[in-house]
Simulated assay, not measured.
Amino acid sequence: MLLDFPIARRLFHLGALALRGMTLGVRGAAIDGDGRVCLVRHTYVAGWHLPGGGVEPGESAVEAMLREFREEAEIGVPADGLRLHGFYRNLAASGRDHVALYVAPAFTRLREKAPDREIAECRFFALDALPEGTTRATLERLHEIREGVSPAALW
């Protein structure tokens, strides 16, 4: 078979990427021992969100989530400290976008997150007292986690 040759397999995968490209993002729920969740408010989009972002080329989804927790919230999570909660299709971004949602059951706050060009604010909120402007998707994902509900198909 043609795909038994490494170059042919590589060409096939490059063609599939060009024709069926997919984007992948990550979001993370860091809930502390007092039942408070970390949310961020970006400078470029409205609302309160779970920390997260895009998976970069050459990076695994777990590596991306660990990086996003550090960059957006000054949270450190052990490399083996993430649990995949769900994998969602994100139609709001595009028909080809997906989001992996991780839960960090244990983490360390490295320092207070100072505002920067991407993050206007980073705070912890009680799960039963989320701020006005918390996005619909964030509310639904936190409900799934808190209530042990199976993840939805769509973000």
Rank of each mutant, 00 (worst) to 15 (best):
R27G: 13
R27N: 12
R27Q: 15
G28I: 15
A29K: 07
A30Y: 06
A30H: 04
A30T: 05
I31S: 00
I31K: 00
I31D: 08
I31H: 04
D34V: 00
G35N: 11
R36G: 00
V37W: 00
L39W: 03
L39S: 07
L39V: 05
V40E: 10
R41Y: 05
R41F: 03
H42P: 04
H42D: 07
T43F: 02
T43R: 11
T43M: 03
V45N: 01
A46Y: 02
A46E: 11
A46Q: 08
G47Q: 00
W48N: 01
H49D: 04
H49K: 03
L50A: 03
G52I: 03
G53Q: 08
G53I: 10
G53T: 08
G53F: 04
V55I: 14
E56F: 14
P57M: 11
G58W: 14
S60G: 04
A61P: 08
V62N: 09
A64F: 06
A64R: 05
L66R: 05
R67I: 15
R67S: 09
R67D: 15
E68N: 09
F69E: 09
F69V: 13
F69M: 15
R70D: 15
R70H: 14
E71H: 03
A73P: 08
A73G: 12
A73K: 06
A73R: 01
A73W: 09
I75R: 01
G76I: 10
V77A: 01
V77W: 13
P78C: 10
A79C: 05
A79E: 12
G81I: 10
G81H: 12
L82D: 09
R83P: 05
R83Y: 10
L84Q: 14
H85D: 04
F87R: 08
Y88T: 05
Y88F: 13
Y88S: 01
R89S: 07
N90E: 15
N90S: 11
L91H: 12
A92C: 02
S94F: 04
S94H: 13
R96N: 11
V99I: 15
A100C: 04
A100L: 15
L101E: 07
L101Y: 09
L101Q: 02
Y102C: 01
